[in-house]
Nucleic acid binder design. Structure first.
Length: 670
DNA sequence: AGACCCAGGTTTTTT
DNA sequence: ACCTGGGTCT
């Protein structure tokens, strides 16, 4: 039992119970991940086979960390044999094995956001809804909701009660057909089709039930309908399921997460053992008290009393700024002051915000002050047009039926195939249902376009056909990607597409960066193939998409992306009416979730928490008067009062100044 | 076909 | 302030 000595009593109880359903209610910072890792280590020590364990985490990063930690606790070999991943990556594994049983082929590709929207548009055009006033994003959301609640198109059509719902259901049906024709799956399909596969092929399900006899789920509060069904099916026979989560940190309701699954776990899994973790190891008590006060306004929750052995700690600062620029400047100054004399690393700071667009102004001020920073997620590298285009080129190699990708790159760089030719192509497809890739090779199409365009198209196809073979036989993946993008004319084409020299060079550089990431993938994985790389690329999450400095740096991200992370010094900016809680949440009646989100933000902080708001903020190019968020009212005055930036800063002591002087003298000589 | 310009809408959160 | 889409001109 020496292994579990590093845990406190309740943690140990959770990690020691290996059989039957277990619910670990773990408040923020109470060592959730620690419990899971130790529990897995304990299983291995008790001769449960690593292959029989499945652990589901919320992000790839968490999965990787967990695998590493188990590796140091037991052995790297055993740790690698445990299946650890997100629901999505697990499902891709499952589908890779048996997807042919539900009518797809193994070389399916995963639709990205842009593809989804394109397919919705195509579907509603085919249904002649294009003149109707239909919001594509809303429909895409509806489709996602259907899948997350395991409603198939037929059921959706039956259940529709009004005209709008009927249309959504019809588009949903069409959308699924289009995806299937193209051998594509969207994100929700990855989960949805696993359920379909298991329900239609009990043998396949049985295989997984027998394989994964022990299941652990992290961040269980964010489980949605499909995911829950998956757990139900897997654990049907032995009920060995351990879920860890915190109902107060449920922040993905809009993505279909159902808090009820954690609130009523004991109804779903009979005789479940419930363990509550209440000792927080992360934050000072001032921070915890503020968090407790904020969250206690919510009614429907498991009551919890977080406490910490750390002292009261620093006061919480709530800063009022005249405008958003001043707020950003304040954050910069506060970081500089804290770092005065190099007392601490930039790594210790995080700046959190409700919506991505708030990062821009912060970035500007950080740049001016030459503070190194990185942005997690957001409009990142991987969403740049040139990257998506390059990926489309690669997807086409793997899955030629992928019309979305072909459509994206057919005329990028310009091959003389303009709107007119595209129109012709679409017309041909109305009667001839083959994929675009086949249609552009038909005489019917080639004779209708200019001779220059024809020649270019034939070259384009010849290059792709050539590389289909090369990718299959050649084992140097990054080199092949480089050659392919060059031969097909894309690498040089970029110089033509983007006229400004500076811009085109930057974009070309980004492509080389992508090729580097292929190289990195190649060096760090065992099962190297283009297909696997593309899957990995598609399944990357926010936390995989850090951008900015490599070395020591301040981290900027949304509160959502900060889930599970901690920093000694945390800034939460933009606590203003309409921003946080977001005005849309007021319409959607989900203020509870916004409050939980604020709770998550507060509980990221270990030692210092600084919350700020601005009285004026630029919106759509116009300055608008802002009102402080009413969430601020729930932080008791004795923990932190509203003050101006000037009142926050303490003048440096003589010693500080002396030390700083010494450094300058040492650097430049006297 | 493609470059260029202007108008209008746009910002929640993401696997 | 920024991006998309539609429209016009070469």
């Amino acid at each position: 039992m020496s292994l579990l000595e590093g845990l406190n009593d309740t943690q140990r109880e959770a990690a020691a119970t290996l059989n039957g359903p277990v619910l670990v209610l773990a408040g923020a910072g109470t060592g959730k991940t620690r419990v899971i890792t130790y529990r897995i280590a304990n299983m291995l020590e008790n001769h449960i086979k690593a292959e029989n364990i499945l652990a589901v985490t919320f992000t790839n990063k968490a999965a990787k960390e967990m695998q590493e930690r188990i590796g140091t606790l037991i052995s790297e070999e055993d740790a690698k044999a445990v299946t650890i991943g997100t629901f999505h990556s697990f499902c891709v594994r499952v589908l890779h094995q048996d997807i042919t049983k539900i009518g797809f082929t193994r070389n399916f590709t995963i639709a990205i956001q842009g593809d989804q929207k394109g397919i919705v548009k195509q579907a509603l055009a085919e249904l002649c809804y294009h003149r109707d006033d239909i919001d594509c994003d809303k429909v895409a959301q509806d489709i996602s909701n259907y899948k997350n609640s395991l409603i198939n198109p037929t059921e959706a059509k039956m259940e529709a009660v009004n005209n709008i719902e009927v249309k959504s259901a019809n588009i949903y049906e069409r959308y699924q057909q289009i995806l299937k024709n193209q051998n594509m799956l969207d994100f929700d399909d990855l989960l949805y089709y696993v359920i379909k596969l298991w329900e239609e092929c009990p043998k396949v399900l049985k295989k997984y039930q027998e394989l994964y006899r022990y299941i652990l789920v992290d961040e269980y509060q964010d489980t949605n309908g499909v995911q829950f069904r998956m757990l139900e099916l897997l654990t049907k026979t032995n009920q060995n399921i351990c879920v860890v989560g915190d109902d107060d940190q449920s922040i993905y309701g809009w993505r279909g997460a159902v808090v009820d699954y954690i609130l009523n776990f004991q109804d779903y899994f009979k005789n479940a053992k419930v363990v509550k973790l209440e000792q927080n190891y992360r934050s000072t008590n001032n921070i915890l008290l503020a968090a407790n006060n904020v969250i206690s306004v919510n009614k429907n929750r498991h009551s919890k009393a977080l406490w910490s052995a750390k002292g009261a700690g620093a006061d919480i600062a709530i800063i009022r700024n005249n405008n958003a620029e001043a707020e950003a400047l304040f954050v910069v100054d506060a970081i500089l002051e804290e770092r005065f004399g190099y007392k601490t690393s930039y790594d210790n700071f995080a700046i959190l915000y409700r919506s991505n667009h708030l990062s821009r102004i912060l970035e500007m001020e950080l740049k001016k002050a030459r503070i190194p920073y990185k942005i997690v997620g957001g409009q990142s590298f991987y969403q740049r047009k040139e990257i998506i285009d390059a990926i489309a080129y690669l997807k086409l190699i793997v899955n030629y039926k992928d019309d979305q990708s072909l459509f994206r790159i057919l005329n990028v760089p310009p091959r003389g195939i303009g709107d007119k030719s595209i129109e012709t192509l679409k017309e041909i497809q109305l009667t001839d249902k083959r994929p675009f890739y086949e249609l552009i090779q038909t005489e019917e199409f080639l004779l209708k376009i200019s001779s220059k365009a024809r020649k270019e198209t034939e070259n384009f196809i010849a290059t792709i056909e050539k590389y289909k073979d090369i990718f299959f036989t050649e084992d140097n993946l990054s080199q092949t990607v480089n050659d392919y993008l060059s031969d097909v004319g894309y690498l040089n084409g970029i110089l033509k597409i983007y006229k400004k020299r500076e811009e085109s060079e930057k974009r070309q550089e980004n492509i080389y960066e992508l090729i580097n990431s292929v190289d990195y993938y190649e060096r760090h994985n065992s099962d190297i193939s283009l297909i696997n790389f593309l899957e990995k690329f598609s399944l990357m999450d926010q936390n995989d998409k850090e951008e900015g400095e490599d070395g020591e740096s301040v981290t900027l991200m949304t509160v959502h992306a900060s889930k599970g992370l901690e920093y000694p010094f945390v800034f939460v900016v933009g606590l203003e009416k309409g921003l946080f809680p977001h005005f849309r949440s007021v319409e959607e009646n989900s203020e509870d979730e916004e409050r939980r989100l604020f709770y998550v933000a507060i509980t990221r902080a270990q030692e210092n928490l600084v919350i700020s708001f601005a009285m004026e903020r630029n919106k759509y190019g116009k300055n608008e008067r802002q009102i402080p968020s009413h969430f601020l009212d729930d932080i008791p005055e004795e923990l932190g009062t509203v003050m101006l930036a000037d009142q926050y800063f303490t003048p440096p002591t003589d010693e500080d100044l002396g030390a700083e002087m010494d450094k300058i003298i040492a650097k430049f000589g006297s």
